[in-house]
Amino acid sequence: MYGNAYIDPNEKANAMIAGEDPIKLAEFEARIARGEKIEPKDWMPKEYRKQLIRMIEQHGHSEIIGALPEGTWITRAPGFKRKLALMAKVQDEVGHAQLLYSAAETLGKSREDMINDLITGKSKYSNVFNYPAYTWADACIIAWLIDAGAIINQVANAKGSYGPYCRALDRICTEESFHLKYGHDNVVTLATGTPTQRKMVQEALTRWWPPIMHFFGPSDKISSHTEILMRWKVKMASNDDMRQQFLNMYVPKIWDLGLELPDANLKKVEDTNSKLGVKWEYTEPDWDEFKRVINGGGPCNAERLAVRRMAEEKGRWVRAALLRKDEKYVTPLA
């Protein structure tokens, strides 16, 4: 029955599937190839579980931490309507974290462990949130362009193979469309406003452009690892493809407002090989800066985690008071 279906663990390309039952692995891969979803109690390769937990958990952390730079502006957003809208957006983002943590949890990592890994700095979150929102215009640029980037990523991942993650993302994507519209409206208001407002939004855009270019991460290494993650529909698009999609959708909209981007090499060229039919050329962002910030060296890393820890600690006595002795945790179903 096994024939030569043996998986040689010493073969470098097999590192991700070493030790897996070849028959179960083949059934699992066939299910994904047929477009069926994987559900929590299904058999899955260890590496599939591990990569998904890491990915969904980090996505959850990004929603929680992302609420901080935007939350900064709730009390000072210009006008009552914008205060309400920003409050609703921030509330949505925190809700997204809940949905994502719940999806990650079905894979066997407890919410307590995820939060612990966030507040000790063991888990990462989206690097963009290690930068501050200096002015109201920064909050507007975040709501428009960072959410735009997030949508591209989330729409791609919603077609992935893990059922609970896809369901969470479908729900999230409907709310994101409001964030994008809200952000765009705010940027347009500033860009079509007084010279001071225009200057303010231009400066914010210039500040945020490098983190935006970092947003999708460095080019993927062409490796068997990436190839397997794509076959398993864990990774749905390459970082470069998502960046191209973002540039193609939003650079024209930015230029349309007469705003400038701080990259003289940014331009669109024909490219018959690409899915888009065009390719955006740009100056490669500073990836050393990216690594420095992701490893703790950014302007706000320390603040973000300290605030998170403070919030956990302040809420602790309330949760302890509500906890009943007969409660027993089991992994959620779906």
Binding site: I115, N116, V307, R309, Y329
Partner: peptide, 24 residues
């Protein structure tokens, strides 16, 4: 709102224990 709290960067806290987040 955060500046007012006067938080220290190294405000390490005890890790969350089992059931801190309740059952589902």
């Amino acid at each position: 709102r955060i500046a007012r709290e006067k938080i220290n960067e190294d405000n390490n806290i005890a890790p969350l224990t089992e059931m801190d987040q309740f059952e589902t």
